[in-house]
Amino acid sequence: MLFFAYRDFTGEPDKILAERGLGRAHHRVIYFVGRYPGMTVSSLLDILKITKQSLSRVLSQLVQEGYISQEQGSVDRRQRLLTLTEQGHEMERLLTETQRKRIARAYRAAGPEAVEGFRAVMLGIMSSDDDRDRFEDRPE
């Protein structure tokens, strides 16, 4: 079930990304930078659990193509703070709009008790306490 749900959940965004020469790694970066404006590269690496080399390739392309901007940290100049550009916000909206609608439709059909059960299952699948802590007291 998880495979089929994931396939359908990612299908439409994958098409949009492919038309622009981008892939799921680009989508993940755009998504999290959109959720946490001004996040550091280090924070993004911690969330994605990928190598610096992998992120560098994806991030460089997104910066070069105008989806993400990087600024030096004001306290620590070695930090690179990431934010979506206007073009990046539009891409994030385009990619996640259908996904949000799909989830909302499923939540409405399942009802609140099922949604809470689903949340418990998702938290149970996560390996890291740090990742689970991100969702403590947050209904999303």
Rank of each mutant, 00 (worst) to 15 (best):
I16Y: 00
E90N: 10
F32A: 00
K15W: 01
L2M: 11
R78D: 08
R24H: 14
R134G: 06
G34C: 01
A110V: 04
A120N: 06
A120C: 01
R57G: 06
E65R: 15
S127D: 13
L2C: 03
S127F: 12
G38P: 01
R105C: 03
G73F: 07
V63T: 09
K52V: 03
L84M: 07
L94M: 07
R80E: 09
D46A: 12
E65L: 14
A120S: 11
E12H: 09
R24A: 12
A18T: 09
Y107Q: 10
F4L: 15
G73S: 05
L95M: 05
L17P: 04
D130I: 05
H26T: 05
S43L: 08
S74L: 13
H26S: 14
Q53Y: 12
R132N: 02
A114V: 01
G111D: 00
G23Q: 06
G23V: 03
D46H: 10
I47P: 00
A5F: 15
R108I: 12
S74N: 09
R57Y: 14
Y107R: 11
L62G: 00
F4E: 15
Q61A: 14
L45D: 06
F118A: 15
T85E: 06
P13N: 01
E92N: 15
G117T: 02
L45A: 02
L55W: 02
M126S: 05
S60R: 15
Y36D: 11
R77T: 12
M91A: 07
T83S: 15
D129S: 13
S74G: 07
